[in-house]
Design a protein around this nucleic acid. Structure first.
Lengths: 154, 154
DNA sequence: TATTGTTATACTCTATAACTATA
DNA sequence: TATAGTTATAGAGTATAACAATA
């Protein structure tokens, strides 16, 4: 029997939310830092796009400018992010992670990965290889593309 | 080179959130019904566990009892859910979907599945088979189990 | 007394509107 | 005039505390 796109979609809708729930839960438990999900995502984006502006960040996270501004207020207060003026266009700001923000993000990511790996140790090597292969097949289909939305989620 | 649990975890953390973002976005766009994610999840749980109590629901969704009570207020108001007293234990209530709630959930789920399938049509059948195989390998590792958290996400 | 659910109240997050400063 | 960002204000959503009803 052929595996249709519909079959695959059904399977994805059944399994992926389960996996995501676990990832989220572990992310939350590990953080010990009391960050909301949008705050976390913000740190991640700023890490990958050091020097980004507020507008660009807001666009990618899916928050309005005022909400993003306020969120950044909090991260700056906690010394996880720096906010500097720009000399070339003085309306704009430049955002970057502090060493502390970078370390926090790193450690959260690391420990989430570790706890996930523990769960996956129940698989044998062949099974893991199939999983990795499947994920690499899916990856390009879900990178930020045309059918993309403006939402940030949280 | 062997595929370690760590490799697999890394791959999951990279790809699964991407997939989930798309699912969420499409879920939101399709709804046209103006439901929050916890409301949606609540409908889903009540469908799968018709007759559930408020406490049980709150436990699974990850909300406190008062929050859940208020959320249900809204769903009852919109006639998506019914809330009835129980004769055997009159402290408890019994929750169930209305026909309307059932239809809404169905249609949202259906159209999300359809749009996902469209995206997956870029794959050939062999690739889809691998994806399905991988998801079935992962599934049992992520069903609500011991390492479970109390969070609901939203 | 313990449990199920609701009501009262407060806090966080996010949005829209109005504003300031710069281009 | 248009754009980048902030401040002011209001609306959801969720939590904790206090309560009512039942077991």
């Amino acid at each position: 029997m052929a595996t249709t796109s519909r079959d695959t979609a059904r399977e994805i809708l059944e399994v992926v939310p389960l996996v995501m729930r676990t990832v989220r839960t572990e992310m939350r438990e590990r953080r010990a830092h009391d960050l909301s999900v949008p705050q976390f995502r913000t740190l991640g984006f700023v890490e990958r796009h050091a020097g980004t502006s507020l507008s660009e960040l807001a666009e990618h996270i899916g928050l309005t400018l005022p909400s993003m501004s306020k969120l950044i207020d909090g991260l700056v207060e906690r010394k996880l992010v720096t906010r500097q003026g720009r000399s070339d266009d003085r309306r704009r700001i430049t955002l970057a992670l502090t060493a502390r923000g970078c370390a926090l993000l790193e450690s959260a990511h690391e420990s989430t990965q570790a706890s996930l790996a523990e769960r996956l140790s129940a698989l044998d090597e062949n099974e893991r290889a199939i999983v990795v292969r499947a994920l690499r097949i899916l990856h390009p289909l879900f990178v930020r593309g045309k059918t993309e939305g403006r939402y940030g989620y949280s």
